[in-house]
Design a protein around this nucleic acid. Structure first.
Length: 494
RNA sequence: GCCGCCAUCGUCUAGUGGUCCAGGACAUCAGAUUCUCAUUCUGAAGAUCACGGGUUCGACUCCCGUUGGCGGUACCA
């Protein structure tokens, strides 16, 4: 078999939709798995939807995710460049190519000029809808004589080029994830290939480019399934080899409609901003519609493992609801695996945006201090967006009601005694011994078997919170001086 | 409307004719550890495999139909 060549061909919309991202991931995995070539092509044929910098953003996300490709569009030192023998890889730079092939199709009798205006078409479709017919082009321009076409074009009249569908029989193909798909040809519309602005439609450009770029496996979203027969007719019309198709299931909103912006965050950028790790996003998205099969119960996959195990045969056919609960869990798993240094690097920018951090004193903004806080927060974090939210007491003064200090029904005197015991323990420790382990050891020794009596008031004194990490850990981060200050402040309340 | 695709716990899914009165994960609940929270561990609950017909000795698995959901039906991709 020939070397596998696949492409991810998004249109630059300004952000990376997670559904598209999954298509990119699967395509990448498929290519790697089979030692094939992965190509990034940009489908910017809709002038009306032009978005500034969209192309750059697209490439950035591909880079960020590590979805490496070896042909197509790149950004190098801020500038768009292209690599590969089959370029250009940006469709707006290939207009003359589409024009040439469209004309070839006309000569072959597989396409024709159409002068119908949008208004006229709308009227036609309205009429068809009224008669409960399927809206389809009525082919009125198919009958036009050659010289009439010529004079109208020369007169500067606007036109499009339409595919002349052969309406006989069926078009059938074998989808790599769905098996046989069969559609009756007379249901197919004479779709527009070239728009009046000289740009091709997706429907035309994708076929021409896939052929010219020698793409032999087409992976794309399920929404293209019903137009695939038209593409097949195009390949056949040119006499080109038809590639293999794999139509991937859709990603859905919780209400099962196609995942859309209205119902929450749909772009990969949104999740990056919320502090989800690349590894978690990839892992999560990969499992939405695919599984390793063979009774495997593995949930955590590195990209390398994904490459090894990915298989189109185990891609699910039904759409998958994009449910964030599992993403949180996965992200927490990946966060737990981070070293303190990695954790610091990733969490820093999120922490710096928080007001309680901005207002903190300088000694609490040192790398050393932040790393201690993070080490303690690590097992409580589902994403970086919430970093520090439950640990504000590390950065600001505590403020709480005196009653919070009381463990169960202990008396004021008891409470005071216990806090004083804590003060003694802390005061007797020298800075060099100030570790989580020693703090725990020394405090527990004094507490005996009535741990709550000592630990609860101490913990509240240090944090001012009902819920928090253990006092040993908090005291360790705060340091001897600050810890004692806080406990003494608690005593003053009594 | 027409055409197409799809259909297993709330969610993601395993399952390719007997080993399935259906397995795992997330979420939920309970218990253990514990000063609280979180983590971790253990356990529970949760799916008449959408429904109805076939085929077969036997169907979650194959076929047909129904229903439902979704997608397409654009000079969007």
């Amino acid at each position: 078999m020939n070397k596998i060549r696949v492409r991810f061909a998004p249109s630059p919309t300004g952000y990376m939709h997670v559904g598209n991202f999954r298509t990119a991931l699967y395509t990448f995995l498929f290519a790697k798995k089979h030692q094939g070539t992965f190509i990034l092509r940009v489908e910017d044929t809709d002038q009306k939807r032009y978005v500034q910098d969209a192309l750059e953003k697209l490439v950035q996300i591909m880079n960020w995710a590590g979805l490496e490709y070896s042909e197509g569009v790149y950004i190098e030192s801020g500038k768009v460049t292209q690599k590969g023998e089959y370029g250009p890889y940006i469709q707006s730079e290939r207009l003359d190519i589409y024009k040439k092939y469209a004309e070839e199709l006309i000569e072959k009798g597989q396409a024709y000029y159409c002068f119908c205006t949008p208004e006229c078409l709308e009227k036609m479709r309205a009429g068809q809808a009224e008669k409960k017919q399927a809206p389809m082009y009525n082919r009125s321009c198919l009958k036009l004589a050659a010289d009439e076409i010529k004079t109208r074009i020369e007169a500067g009249e606007k036109f499009v080029i339409r595919q002349k569908i052969s309406t006989e029989g069926f078009t059938e193909y074998d989808d790599m994830v769905r098996g046989k798909v069969k559609i009756k040809n007379d249901l197919l519309d004479d779709q527009i290939l070239m728009k009046s602005d000289g740009y091709p439609t997706y429907n035309f450009a994708n076929v021409v480019d896939d052929h010219l770029m020698q793409i032999n496996h087409v992976l794309r979203g399920e929404e293209y399934i019903s137009s695939t027969p038209k593409y097949i007719q195009l390949y056949q019309g040119f006499g080109w080899e038809v590639p293999e198709f794999a139509h991937l299931p859709l990603l859905l909103n919780p209400d099962k409609t196609k995942l859309s912006k209205r119902q929450g965050d749909v772009s990969v950028e949104d999740y990056i901003q919320k502090g989800y790790l690349k590894e978690a996003i990839i892992n999560f998205v990969a499992l939405l519609g695919w599984n390793p099969g063979e009774g495997s119960t593995q949930e955590i996959f590195s990209t390398e493992e994904l490459v090894k195990k990915f298989d189109l045969a185990h891609v699910h056919k039904a759409g998958a609801i994009f449910d964030l609960k599992k993403l949180d869990w996965l992200n927490a798993q990946y966060i737990k695996k981070l070293s303190v240094d990695e954790l610091y690097e990733k969490a820093k920018e999120f922490l710096e945006q928080k007001d309680f951090f901005k207002n903190a004193s300088d000694d609490k903004k040192t790398e050393e201090y932040i790393k201690k806080v993070l080490a303690i927060e690590q097992e409580r974090l589902a994403n970086f967006f919430g970093v520090g939210d439950s640990s504000k007491f590390f950065f600001q003064d505590v403020n709480y009601d005196k009653e919070l200090l009381r463990w169960k029904k202990m008396s004021d005197e008891d409470l005071k005694n216990n806090l004083e015991k804590s003060v003694q323990v802390l005061e007797n420790m020298v800075d060099a011994d100030w570790t989580k382990e020693n703090l725990e050891k020394n405090l527990l020794e004094v507490a005996g078997d009535r741990r709550g009596d000592l630990l609860w008031p101490l913990r509240v004194a240090l944090t001012g919170e009902q819920k928090s990490p253990p006092p040993f850990e908090v005291a360790w981060v705060l340091g001897k001086y600050e810890s004692l200050e806080r406990v003494k402040m608690a005593l003053n309340k009594l």
